[in-house]
Simulated scan of single mutants.
Amino acid sequence: MKKRSLENSQPTPIVLTIAGSDSGGGAGIQADIKAISATGSYACSAITAITAQNTQGVSAIFPIPLEHINNQLDAVFSDLNIVAVKVGMLADSEIIKVVAAKIKQYKPTFLVVDPVMVATSGDLLLQESAINTLKSELLPLADLITPNLPEGAALTGAALPTCEDDMGAMISALRQLNVKAVLLKGGHLEQDENSNDLLIFQDHFELLTAKRINTHNTHGTGCTLSSAIASYLAQGNDLQQAVTRGKQYISSAIAHADELDIGSGHGPVNHFFAGHANV
């Protein structure tokens, strides 16, 4: 079959998400694909685990066999021009090692790691023994990691921040993780009027602020934000632009979340609040 002419077409920004599947559709691979698509890129995926999950929580996790994770990654990297990779849920040390080895092998231009350890519901999604493997094998390869406050505490051994001053006190420890940049998300400080994040570089940091939205429908916010950032990086934005646009996107998706009526627990954000237009 003859391929269509590509003379007048622009390269398609392709983003790979490596993460777990959420059977409820609100987080994980499903949220990633929605966010990448809604922000104007093409999404491909490699599934690391299958969760039995809904808006009320996670009831079971089945890690994908290592050989098949390898096969998925070889399949997409060998054929698709993947510019950015977003990594989410990695259930154990061996999966982390496989993913890190493939990132080193194929060398995508951008890597965003959402160190998924604790779901919004409080369920533990990463074995505690795997945290050190994550820190030594994968995080040093990342252009950006996007921990929430419990994840930041788990990565650094610091106490869980209860205010913005505590977030600031965590900056030094986060810089010691040997990553290029950290987006520390302050969404768990629910008593604050704004939802403030810290974009932390080795030599400076910036405060990113947005009005806090009063909604219970926040399932998949971390997955969605990190995927949107990877999408904007793939489109040629620099890191600060990609993070700023990603925060604007997730803020709007949360603001429109109550337009959806999904499940009886923490519902998903509204990924397609603007149709398929680039945000």
Rank of each mutant, 00 (worst) to 15 (best):
V15T: 11
R4E: 15
A154T: 09
R245F: 11
D22M: 10
N278R: 12
S121W: 11
V243W: 03
A46D: 02
Y106M: 11
I103T: 03
N237L: 15
Y106T: 09
D32N: 10
T218Q: 01
E137F: 01
I250P: 00
Y249N: 02
G186D: 03
Q241W: 11
P161R: 01
S251P: 01
L199Y: 05
K135C: 00
L207F: 13
F77V: 09
Q105G: 10
V118W: 03
L260F: 01
Q235A: 13
A101F: 10
A43P: 03
A277C: 08
G263Y: 04
A91W: 05
K2M: 14
T209H: 03
P268I: 04
T224F: 01
I18A: 05
I250C: 03
R4W: 14
L126A: 03
G236D: 11
F77G: 04
P11Y: 06
L189K: 04
M1S: 15
K185H: 06
A230E: 10
A257I: 00
I18Y: 04
L125P: 03
G265S: 07
V269S: 00
H204D: 11
G20M: 06
E206R: 14
G25A: 08
D238Q: 14
T146I: 13
S23V: 13
L66V: 05
S121I: 14
L134S: 00
Q30D: 08
I262V: 14
T218I: 06
Q248E: 15
S23T: 15
A274P: 02
K135N: 00
I229H: 06
A130W: 02
Q56T: 15
P147C: 11
Y232P: 04
Q56D: 13
R245S: 13
L6P: 06
L184W: 05
H266P: 01
S21V: 14
S121L: 09
C163L: 08
V83T: 15
L160V: 12
N278P: 00
L141T: 08
P150K: 04
K104V: 14
E137D: 08
R4S: 15
D238E: 14
A31S: 10
L160D: 12
P147V: 11
P140I: 08
S45D: 02
Y42R: 07
K102C: 04
S23P: 09
I254C: 00
E259W: 01
V118D: 02
H219E: 02
I229C: 10
M1L: 14
V279G: 02
E206N: 12
G40C: 09
V15W: 08
D123K: 11
L126M: 12
I61Y: 06
L139D: 00
A38S: 12
I50R: 02
E128P: 00
A277I: 08
R245E: 13
D92C: 06
A242T: 08
L198M: 11
P161M: 06
S136H: 03
A60E: 15
A35F: 05
E190T: 14
K34I: 07
H276F: 12
E164W: 07
S252F: 03
T12H: 08
N214G: 02
